[in-house]
């Protein structure tokens, strides 16, 4: 019982390890990013990439591939993966439920309905390619407000939120099925969108998602202590001086926005937002000051690796990335769960 304890030393040691972990993740992400730019239907060496971007007389074809196709796509994978993971961490922490994901409030189903609506009525041909994005975004936000509306009747309790999310989500899923059923071949494209993919990535999309991601990172990191307290329960958080009602609605809105924007651009890419936070929890624990950035990095890595694989497997065609994330992610996740040692790394 009388063992000595030096909290200062212990705290610094643990924090040092976690910072080192973040550093390793950053390096790994950088490495995967570079490899992913090189890999594709045409393999490009790193020297050629540098030449294509900065060179005096670049090969125009190569330059177009690198700058207009590869780099936007890779960056999109990184940003979308980060957004989904941050949203996943927030949802799991707030709802105190390990099964919670960015989609738990039915946001994806709402987005899918918006996209299906755009395709079914051929709105892209009338209003341009962003009609789909806009409708998807609008309907995911509509879903969010419907879920809040239902849940706030009972004081925004966790269980009510989850149930309302499932209910509204099912409603929109049914509507999507209806649209697919009545629209025939015209809506074939929506099936691809539903599977999720990054083939639409271009600089315009990056300019949409980047500010959302940046804001998301800054705000969530600032809310780390709130999230720590809230993940212990509403009453504990209140006793620690957190304005629970405000924090909850604020953070849920933020997570929904992160998800909605991502999903509207990429379709529903499953699994990343659920699994990335868990991988990090198992490795370095649940202190949100480290859990948030580490999950963002892991999510980015997962989605980027999966997307790169999806471009390689049936080269030159590609598989929807959602299939890959599940096929690779599930066994890895199950392995970690079976191993069950929480002291996995730290």
């Amino acid at each position: 019982m009388s063992s000595e304890v030096d909290v200062n030393k212990l705290y610094r040691k643990v924090r040092g390890k976690k910072i080192f972990f973040l550093f390793i993740l950053t390096l790994a992400l950088l490495a995967i990013t570079i490899i992913s730019i090189c890999i594709g239907p045409i393999s490009i060496s790193i020297q050629d990439i540098i030449k294509a971007i900065f060179g005096e007389n670049p090969d125009e074809n190569l330059r177009a591939i690198v700058l207009d196709v590869r780099i936007p796509r890779v960056l999109m994978a990184v940003m979308a993966g980060t957004c989904l993971s941050l949203a996943g961490v927030i949802m799991q922490g707030l709802l105190r439920n390990p099964l919670a994901s960015p989609y738990v409030l039915g946001v994806a189903a709402g987005a899918a309905f918006g996209a299906a609506l755009a395709v079914a009525f051929g709105l892209q041909f009338i209003f341009g390619e962003y009609a789909l994005f806009m409708l998807a975004l609008v309907f995911s936000l509509v879903t969010m407000f419907m879920v809040y509306g239902l849940a706030s009747a009972r004081g925004v309790e966790t269980e009510t939120l989850i149930l309302a999310g499932i209910a509204i989500g099912s409603l929109f899923n049914a509507l999507v099925s209806f649209l697919i059923y009545v629209s025939g071949e015209k809506i074939y494209g929506i099936v691809f969108w539903l599977m999720g993919g990054l083939w639409g990535a271009d600089w315009e999309q990056l300019f949409i998602i980047f500010p959302v991601l940046l804001g998301g990172i800054v705000i969530t990191l600032n809310c780390s202590w709130d999230l720590n307290a809230l993940s212990m329960g509403d009453e504990v958080a209140m006793n620690l001086g957190i304005n629970v009602k405000f924090s909850k609605i604020f953070l849920l809105t933020l997570a929904t926005l992160l998800t909605a924007v991502t999903v509207s651009l990429t379709g529903t890419i499953g699994f990343i937002g659920l699994v990335a936070p868990h991988i990090v929890r198992i490795m370095i624990g649940s202190d949100h000051r480290f859990l948030l950035p580490a999950s963002g990095l892991v999510g980015a890595m997962l989605l980027l690796s999966a997307d790169t694989l999806s471009r390689m497997i049936i080269n030159p065609a590609e598989m929807p990335v959602g299939i890959i994330t599940s096929v690779i992610g599930v066994p890895f996740f199950v392995y970690l769960l079976m191993k069950r040692r929480k002291r996995w790394w730290i």
């Binding site: 212990l10 922490g93 105190r96 390990p98 720590n228 212990m232 624990g285 649940s286 202190d287 929480k342």
Partner: peptide
């Protein structure tokens, strides 16, 4: 209390 893995120090 049920929580995600947190150490006593946390």
């Amino acid at each position: 209390l049920r929580s995600f893995p947190l150490t006593v120090l946390d």
